[in-house]
Each structure stands twice: as C-alpha cells, then as structure tokens.
Computed example of a mutant assay.
Amino acid sequence: MVEFDVVALPETDHVEAGETAPDFTRPLVNQEFWEDRTLSSLLDDGPILLVAHPMDGAFQSIYVYNEIADRGWADRLDVIGISISTPYEHKTLLAERGVDAQIFSDPAGEVLAEYGIENDLDGMAGIVDARPAMFLIDEDRTVQYAWVGTEQPSFPPYDEVDAAIDDIRA
C-alpha cells in the first residue's frame, strides 16, 4: 500500500451553496479539441457539476475521474473539470479515464482563487494547485451543492454528491 502524509489545508473563504457561481472564460478541453468558453454558456443545456482537481497526473485526479465514470454522472448532467494543467494534459487525462467530461484549463489559478479553492504548493513560490472541490451549479448559476476538501489528499463524499445530482435532476 502506498503511504503518504495527510496535510490539513488552511481555512478558505470558498463559494458556498446558495451563492452565485462566478462566471469566467478559459480554454475548455474535450477529447477532440479546445476553445475558449464561459462557464455561463455551458449552463444553457442544464445544470453542471464543476469538479476542481489537482494537476492531471496526480493520483487524486485519476481516482476522482474513475469514480465519476463508474457512477455514470456524465450521463446525468455535464461534468466540467477545472485544474491548472494544460489543454494537452487534459486531453490525455480524458482519453485515459474514458469519461465523457470536459475540463477548463486555469494554469495561473485565477479562477481557482475566485472560487476560494486555490492551494499554495509547499516549496514552490508562486505555484498554486486546485484544492479538491465539487460545485453543483444550476442554470441560473446558483450553487446548489458545494464540497471543498479540508486536507490534502481528500476525496469528495461521492454518495452525497450523487444524492445532490438526483435532487437537481428531479
């Protein structure tokens, strides 16, 4: 079994359920191509699950997308990731995981900061990564469900997220 240290993350003032999700424009990547898109333009088709995850090669990201695929969430609503990784890395992650999702590329972590989910990496001045988080956002950009990790690594409460998806799709 792989051993790793669990590190408590500092408190954060992140976006909460009931608040309006900040809109932004970033490159949105799918398995075929990428283009600049706004978050709000994605809501025209219904609610989305915004999934913030560490860099694409991190084991947390791999596990999260495996769980998303296994639970069939992308069959129920649009799953949209966000991380600091490049569009090229996102294409590779999506292809390897076989999940029908798209991922925003936010290399400078500006959107992560706006959502209050940036995580300063120890020993790397000026480098941030995403704190694990999930936001279920409705067509009006209202956050219906929010989970933000409090330690590194941490994983979402999948059954709770599943129930929130059921509620928003009802």
Results as ranks from 00 to 15, higher is better:
residue 29 V to C: 05
residue 93 L to R: 05
residue 106 D to A: 11
residue 79 V to S: 03
residue 110 E to L: 13
residue 64 V to D: 09
residue 166 D to P: 07
residue 73 W to H: 00
residue 107 P to W: 08
residue 44 D to M: 04
residue 12 T to Y: 09
residue 112 L to G: 07
residue 41 S to L: 09
residue 81 G to Q: 07
residue 75 D to P: 00
residue 4 F to A: 12
residue 135 F to P: 12
residue 12 T to V: 14
residue 156 P to L: 10
residue 99 V to F: 02
residue 110 E to T: 13
residue 169 R to S: 15
residue 159 D to G: 11
residue 103 I to T: 11
residue 125 A to K: 14
residue 98 G to I: 02
residue 35 E to L: 14
residue 65 Y to S: 11
residue 107 P to E: 03
residue 143 V to D: 07
residue 101 A to C: 07
residue 145 Y to L: 10
residue 120 D to F: 01
residue 166 D to A: 12
residue 99 V to N: 04
residue 103 I to L: 10
residue 32 E to G: 09
residue 93 L to W: 04
residue 53 H to G: 07
residue 136 L to K: 11
residue 51 V to P: 09
residue 159 D to P: 05
residue 115 Y to C: 07
residue 167 D to L: 13
residue 129 D to F: 10
residue 93 L to H: 08
residue 52 A to R: 04
residue 86 T to L: 13
residue 114 E to N: 10
residue 162 D to F: 08
residue 12 T to E: 07
residue 125 A to Q: 15
residue 80 I to Q: 02
residue 1 M to L: 15
residue 98 G to H: 06
residue 46 G to P: 03
residue 52 A to F: 11
residue 45 D to A: 12
residue 163 A to L: 12
residue 50 L to N: 07
residue 101 A to K: 05
residue 87 P to D: 01
residue 135 F to W: 15
residue 153 P to E: 01
residue 131 R to A: 07
residue 134 M to S: 07
residue 24 F to Y: 08
residue 53 H to T: 13
residue 131 R to S: 06
residue 75 D to A: 08
residue 67 E to Q: 13
residue 1 M to F: 13
residue 118 E to Y: 06
residue 53 H to D: 05
residue 74 A to S: 11
residue 56 D to W: 00
residue 35 E to Y: 05
residue 165 I to R: 09
residue 149 G to C: 03
residue 16 E to I: 09
residue 166 D to F: 06
residue 13 D to Q: 14
residue 120 D to G: 10
residue 6 V to T: 12
residue 81 G to N: 03
residue 73 W to I: 02
residue 14 H to A: 15
residue 94 L to M: 00
residue 107 P to C: 07
residue 86 T to N: 10
residue 167 D to C: 06
residue 51 V to R: 06
residue 65 Y to N: 11
residue 142 T to D: 12
residue 18 G to N: 05
residue 124 M to P: 00
residue 28 L to F: 02
residue 41 S to D: 14
residue 122 D to S: 14
residue 52 A to P: 08
residue 108 A to I: 09
residue 4 F to D: 00
residue 1 M to K: 12
residue 100 D to Q: 07
residue 78 D to T: 14
residue 148 V to M: 02
residue 25 T to I: 15
residue 91 K to A: 12
residue 144 Q to W: 00
residue 74 A to Y: 01
residue 158 Y to E: 05
residue 2 V to P: 14
residue 129 D to S: 15
residue 25 T to R: 14
residue 117 I to A: 01
residue 42 L to S: 00
residue 54 P to F: 04
residue 98 G to S: 03
residue 158 Y to A: 05
residue 121 L to K: 11
residue 97 R to V: 09
residue 106 D to N: 08
residue 50 L to Y: 06
residue 71 R to M: 04
residue 141 R to P: 04
residue 168 I to D: 04
residue 164 A to Y: 04
residue 56 D to G: 14
residue 122 D to M: 10
residue 130 A to Y: 04
residue 144 Q to K: 15
residue 165 I to S: 10
residue 68 I to K: 02
residue 49 L to H: 06
residue 117 I to T: 08
residue 67 E to I: 08
residue 82 I to Q: 07
residue 87 P to S: 02
residue 143 V to I: 06
residue 86 T to A: 09
residue 23 D to Y: 13
residue 156 P to F: 01
residue 85 S to L: 03
residue 105 S to M: 02
residue 22 P to K: 00
residue 1 M to D: 13
residue 70 D to H: 02
residue 87 P to T: 01
